[in-house]
Amino acid sequence: MKTQLLIIGTAVVLTVIVVFTAVILGYTLDKNSSTSTPMLQIGSSSTEVSGDSLKALEGSGSVAEVLPGTISIPGYDTIKMAGGQLDQTVRLYNPAGNVCLFLVTMYLPDGKEIYRSDILRPGEELNSIRLTSELDPGTYKDALLVYSCFSKDTLQSMNGATVKFTLEVI
């Protein structure tokens, strides 16, 4: 009788410990998963996301997936620059996996060229650029970023794209 009670008592204690451990684990996992959920709701230019989501976004931006036989063109809705200086912090890149070389040229809406890159190989990235002339503060709608694409092997011209964006000079 005593042995039976001892077994039952031990079983009760173990069960309680297992249940509480599961509750704590479940609570912790739920907390972690809820922090990355907002990433799925990104839909505006000013969305709050967690640090985890930020890392995920950075990953998707720098190494964009390139479909076979296609050229991936990175586009920007708005690019911000500082007025009265030539050196700017702007990220321009040729996505890894692209089959072509990029030559990127930037124009103001009036057609004035303000930047021309060197050849960018697939996976190559610029984080700072030097403009040909300083910009006055203001908002320049319909500025242009022209992507000229060339074959890696023959340097022959390929299909290309022009991205229209808003240039905000502060």
């Binding site: 990104i42 969305t47 967690s50 390139v66 920007y76």
Partner: peptide, 24 residues
Amino acid sequence: NETEASTSVQYTVESGYTVSIPAT
């Protein structure tokens, strides 16, 4: 844990996109 959960990190997501056009 409830007390610690009130900490938040903010970051502004710049709008952008990637368009895939045929190479050839």
